[in-house]
C-alpha cells in the first residue's frame, strides 16, 4: 500500500459564496472523505485557508497571499492509501472540487510512505 497526496487547485478561488453553498460544499467534501475513510484508506488531510497567507519570494520579499500573479490557488490536500496510482485517481474523481470548471486535483505519490525513504 502506497500513500498519495491529492492536491486541490482552484481557479478563481476568490469570489462570493453564500453560507448555504459553503455548507453544501462541506457536506459533499465530508461525504467524499468519509467514503474513503470507510475503506480505511484515508490518512490525513487539511484545508488551506487564504487568511493570513503569505508568499516568500526568492529575494526574501514577502507578499500577501498567493493571489494576483497566480491563476490557480491551492485549496487543500488529502493523503490517501492506495495500491496504485490508478486507485488514487479513482478517489480523486470523486472530489467535489472538480465540480468547479478549471479546478484540478493533482495526484502525487508520497515518497516517505513507500517504505524506502
Amino acid at each position: 500500500m502506497q500513500e498519495f497526496m491529492l492536491i486541490f487547485r482552484h481557479e478563481n478561488a476568490v469570489g462570493q459564496v453564500s453560507p448555504e453553498q459553503i455548507q453544501q460544499w462541506m457536506k459533499q467534501t465530508m461525504d467524499w472523505i468519509g467514503g474513503i475513510a470507510a475503506q480505511n484508506k484515508f490518512v490525513r488531510g487539511d484545508g488551506l485557508p487564504f487568511d493570513n497567507a503569505r508568499v516568500v519570494h526568492h529575494n526574501k520579499m514577502v507578499t500577501n497571499g498567493p493571489f494576483g500573479e497566480i491563476k490557480e490557488t491551492l485549496g487543500g490536500y488529502i493523503v490517501v492509501k492506495a495500491d496504485s496510482v490508478d486507485e488514487a485517481v479513482e478517489f480523486a474523481k470523486g472530489s467535489p472540487v472538480l465540480q468547479g470548471e478549471g479546478n484540478t486535483v493533482e495526484v502525487r505519490k508520497v515518497a516517505r510512505g513507500d517504505g524506502i525513504h
Binding site: 468519509g34 470507510a38 488531510g45
Partner: peptide, 22 residues
C-alpha cells in the same frame, strides 16, 4: 448520523463504523 460517521471514520477507522456509515 451520516455526517457524524464521516467525521468518526476520519478520526479513527473501524469496520463497524464503516458499515454503519454505509
Amino acid at each position: 448520523i451520516l455526517q457524524l460517521y464521516n467525521k468518526l471514520l476520519v478520526l479513527e477507522y473501524s469496520p463497524m463504523a464503516a458499515l454503519n456509515r454505509t
